[in-house]
């Protein structure tokens, strides 16, 4: 018996990284999982196969969530093929990092379209279904970059700031419909996305600044997603919960250098 038996979850950008970990963790708790991907069909199929091999239910659904029509189609297909929808995990994200001096003028827009646009479009696509059934849970994957600055990540930071602000506003607006909206604020997490950060020097330049002295694992972010998704009748909404090894609690690097 899992905590999410009988539930259906949709995870955007679930072919790899944090999204993949969320799909596996939700399935392990009994949820049927819609594994969304944009371009990595083989990886998404592998996630589906892994879930099914463990006795779970899952299916892969292509769709670029930055496109409102694609997002709506994705949600409708997931509901149709998996028999409902109760949990949405807005995870799909990209980076276009670089110094402000060098970024192309529309670099921010590309990042915003996916990282915030995906959250917005998928949220809009589920609210009517959730409200009609009397509730649902939305978990957005935000980032410590939404809260604190770092060189070279301005577009990503701004997009995640939008996700965190949207999480609060949407939570307030949707609460009366039984829809809870929360964010998991992921710290530096071991995925392809941050591979270049940790490649050099075994990542010590990064991990020395984190109280727990290591980067996070995607499974640790996913565990918090499951917790938030499972509190179906819970009292937690509008929250941004850090899973960051203590990074956001730190003043400077946490000690004299």
């Amino acid at each position: 018996m899992g905590r999410l038996d009988g539930r259906v979850a949709l995870v955007t950008g679930a072919s790899r990284g944090i999204g993949r970990a969320c799909a596996l963790a939700l399935a392990a708790e009994g949820a049927a999982v819609a594994v969304n991907y944009r371009s990595q069909a083989a990886s998404a199929d592998a996630v589906v196969a892994e879930i099914r091999a463990s006795g779970g239910a899952a299916a892969a659904f292509p769709g670029d969530v930055s496109d409102p029509v694609a997002a709506r189609t994705l949600v409708e297909r997931a509901i149709g093929e998996l028999g409902g929808l109760h949990i949405l995990v807005n995870n799909a994200g990209i980076t276009r990092d670089g110094l402000l001096f060098n970024l192309e003028p529309d670099a921010w827009l590309e990042v915003m379209r996916v990282n915030f646009g995906g959250v917005f479009h998928c949220t809009k696509a589920v609210v009517e279904h959730f409200a009609a059934q009397g509730g649902g849970v939305i978990v957005n994957i935000s980032s410590t970059h939404a809260e604190r600055g770092w060189t070279g990540v301005s577009t990503y930071a701004a997009s995640k700031g939008a996700v965190s602000a949207f999480t609060r506003a949407a939570a307030v607006e949707l609460a009366r419909f039984g829809i809870r909206v929360n964010a998991v604020v992921a710290g530096i997490t071991d995925t392809e996305m941050v591979g270049s950060l940790t490649a050099r020097d075994g990542g010590r330049g990064v991990t020395r600044q984190i109280p727990l002295k290591r980067t996070g694992r995607a499974e640790e972010v996913a565990a918090m997603v499951v917790l938030l998704a499972g509190l179906e009748n819970g009292y937690v909404t509008g929250a941004s919960i850090p899973v960051d090894g203590g990074a956001l609690s730190t003043l400077g690097v946490g000690q004299p250098l």
Partner: peptide
């Protein structure tokens, strides 16, 4: 927003959308 809430509740109680 109240109207939306009313109509969703009607839909759940009576099945009329």
């Amino acid at each position: 927003i109240d109207l939306l809430d009313i109509l969703f509740r009607v839909e759940r109680k009576l099945g009329v959308k």
